[in-house]
């Protein structure tokens, strides 16, 4: 039996695709969050009255107490802090990147959640957890996460 399997030399392969593509709605919370990002260049968070934190990215509901979040959203102010980071050397297809890319998990006081984003204007070896970072806005904003081009080190 083992001899019969794995004989791949003469195997035909047929190309195929699943004949669909997708268009996603941003959702009730996403619509408002990305609109503020695009139109006002502001990062908003949705407070949960029961848990006494604000959620970033904002959600329609709090996943912990499972109640609707407040309609009174708040601006995320001040720099975030790097909770963790990594330095990428290869792209999604396994090809080497021209230059290493830093990705960081950013957090803010009083905020549950945070943002996963690129960190720039710093050498990979200089990044430290706990360091402060601020958003650098893209020249053209479309209402997407990439309206923030990247985060860069900032003073506290």
């Amino acid at each position: 039996m083992l001899d019969k399997i794995g004989q791949t030399q003469n195997m035909r392969q047929v190309a195929g695709t699943i004949p669909i593509h997708h268009r996603y709605t941003l959702g009730v919370a996403g619509e408002r969050f990305f609109r503020a990002l695009r139109d006002e260049g502001r990062l908003l968070a949705a407070p949960c009255a029961r848990c006494k934190v604000a959620l970033l990215p904002p959600k329609m509901y709090c996943e912990r107490c499972f109640r609707e979040t407040s309609e009174e959203w708040v601006e995320v102010s001040g720099p975030g802090r790097v909770r963790s980071f990594t330095v990428l050397r290869y792209d999604l297809d396994g090809q080497p990147l021209d230059a290493p890319q830093i990705v960081a998990l950013l957090e803010w006081p009083g905020i549950r959640g945070g943002l996963l984003h690129r960190l720039g204007e710093i050498a990979p070896g200089a990044v430290r957890t706990g360091m402060a970072a601020e958003p650098v806005w893209a020249r053209q904003r479309t209402g997407a996460l990439t309206d923030i081009s990247h985060f860069r080190p900032s003073s506290d």
């Binding site: 996603y24 709605t25 941003l26 959702g27 009730v28 919370a29 996403g30 619509e31 329609m60 509901y61 107490c65 499972f66 609707e68």
Partner: peptide
């Protein structure tokens, strides 16, 4: 036909309605 709500938000709205109908919370 096409909801603004994300899949998660649709799940939340359905789940909340059922909990309310039962008089229970999460």
């Amino acid at each position: 036909r096409r909801a603004l709500e994300t899949s998660k938000e649709l799940a939340f709205e359905g789940a909340s309605a059922a909990l309310e109908d039962a008089g229970l919370t999460i």
